[in-house]
Design a protein around this nucleic acid. Structure first.
Length: 338
DNA sequence: AAATCTTACAACCGCACAGAT
DNA sequence: GATCTGTGCGGTTGTAAGATT
C-alpha cells in the first residue's frame, strides 16, 4: 500500500532500517537533494520523498544534537512557546541542533505535564484555578478537551527587576507539586547516535545503532556542519520564576539565550496584541476585585497564601496585581526580539 | 515470569503555501 | 487565473521499551 502522495509506487512505511538510513545518508552526503521526490528513486529506497525528507531532517542530519534537553533548552522552549504558541518550527530555530518534531515531542511528553503540575495552563502559561486544575490534569493528554483558561490572574514582578525574590516567600507559595523531582532521563536510549569527530585531520562520521551497539556506517565527514552553541550563561535571575505558578506573560525573565529571529514580523504583532489583551484583562481583574470587596475571591481555592503574599509585598520586594505594579517594558523588549 | 500500563519519540497524515506550468 | 507539484508544518498515531501489577 502506498502513500496518497506517492501511490504510483509501492513504498515501505514504518520504522527505518539501518540499511535504509545508510542509503539515504550516502545519497544526501554525496549528491545533496535537489528534489525530495526524486531522492527515493535515486537513492534506491522504497520510500516516498516526504518520508525521506522527514527522516533526514528529524533524525539523520549530522548537525542534530541528540540526547536530553538541558534545563536551559527547556526554559527557552517555555519562554518562546509563551510568545509563539505551538509554532514548533519557530521554537526549534532557537535551539540549534533540535528539530521541531523533537521540541514538540518534548513539550507534549514533559513540559506540558510539568506546567500543569505547577498549576499553569500549558496553552496560555497562566495560572489555573485549583478547581480547574483537576480537569486540566485529566485532559493533559487530550488537548482537544482542554478548556481555555482565563487570562492573567496575577502579575508578580520585582520592583527593580532584580529578580531577587524573598526566599521564604518562594518557599511558602510553591505548590507541593512544584517540588517535583528532576526530569527523568529523556531520550536516554536514542536509536542512533551520531558522533562527529573533529579531532582528526580527516573527520569520520560514525553512526551507531544503539539497539545493537554496532556501527553501521563510517564515512569521511567532508561537509562543514555549523552548529551554534547555545549561550547558557547570563541568566539574570537566580531563581526560575516560572516554577512558582503565579507568573504571567508579562514577567519575562531575562535570558541571553533567545536570539532574534530577524526583522520584526508577525510574532511581534502577536506579542503586542497579547500585551494589549493582558492590559484589558488585568484591568478587568482589578475592577472585579473592587466590586467584590469582602466577597470570596474566585481564586480562594488556590493553594497560594494570599495574605502571606501581601505581607511580603508590603516589605517592598514584590508588587502584586492588587497594588498594580506593572512594567510592560520587559515584555515589549522581548517582543521586539521575536 | 507474564500481562498490562505508561512513556517517549519516530513516523505518518492532511493541510497550507509557494512556485512552476 | 487554474492546476499541478514540491515542500514545510502541526496534529496525531504507532510502536518499542520500561515500569508496574
Amino acid at each position: 500500500m502506498g502513500h496518497r502522495c506517492c501511490n504510483k509506487q509501492k513504498v515501505k512505511r514504518g520504522l527505518w532500517s539501518p540499511e535504509e538510513d545508510e542509503k539515504l545518508i550516502r545519497y544526501i552526503i554525496t549528491n545533496g537533494h535537489v528534489s525530495w521526490s526524486s531522492v527515493p528513486k535515486l537513492a534506491g529506497l522504497q520510500r516516498c520523498g516526504k518520508s525521506c525528507r522527514l527522516r533526514w531532517i528529524n533524525y539523520l542530519r549530522p548537525d542534530l544534537k541528540r540526547g536530553s534537553f538541558t534545563a536551559d533548552e527547556e526554559q527557552i522552549i517555555i519562554d518562546v512557546h509563551r510568545i509563539l504558541g505551538n509554532r514548533w518550527a519557530q521554537i526549534a530555530k532557537h535551539l540549534p541542533g533540535r528539530t521541531d518534531n523533537e521540541v514538540k515531542n518534548f513539550w507534549n511528553s514533559c513540559i506540558k505535564k510539568k506546567l500543569i503540575s505547577q498549576g499553569l495552563d500549558p496553552k496560555t502559561h497562566n495560572l489555573i484555578a485549583s478547581h480547574q486544575r483537576r480537569h486540566c490534569v485529566k485532559t493533559a493528554c487530550n488537548p482537544s478537551q482542554t478548556r481555555q483558561q482565563p487570562d492573567s490572574v496575577f502579575t508578580v514582578m520585582t520592583i527593580d527587576n532584580s529578580m531577587e525574590v524573598n526566599r521564604s516567600f518562594v518557599t511558602r507559595i510553591i505548590p507541593e507539586s512544584c517540588t517535583s523531582t528532576p526530569l527523568p532521563p529523556h531520550n536516554s536510549q536514542p536509536t542512533l547516535q551520531q558522533t562527529i569527530s573533529m579531532s582528526t585531520p580527516s573527520p569520520v562520521w560514525t553512526i551507531k545503532n544503539q539497539r545493537t551497539s554496532h556501527d553501521f556506517i563510517n564515512f569521511p565527514c567532508g561537509s562543514s556542519f555549523e552548529s551554534t552553541p547555545i549561550n547558557s550563561s547570563s541568566s539574570s535571575c537566580s531563581i526560575n520564576p516560572s516554577a512558582f505558578g503565579f507568573i504571567d506573560e508579562n514577567c519575562i525573565w531575562g535570558r541571553g539565550t533567545v536570539e532574534p529571529l530577524g526583522a520584526p514580523g508577525e510574532e511581534q504583532l502577536q506579542v503586542q496584541e497579547l500585551s494589549q489583551k493582558e492590559k484589558i484583562c488585568h484591568q478587568q481583574q482589578i475592577d472585579k476585585t473592587d466590586e467584590k470587596e469582602g466577597a470570596p475571591s474566585p481564586y480562594d481555592s488556590c493553594s497560594f497564601d494570599l495574605e502571606f503574599m501581601e505581607s511580603t509585598l508590603m516589605s517592598g520586594e514584590i508588587c502584586l496585581s492588587g497594588e498594580i505594579c506593572r512594567d510592560l517594558t520587559t515584555m515589549d523588549d522581548l517582543a521586539w526580539h521575536f
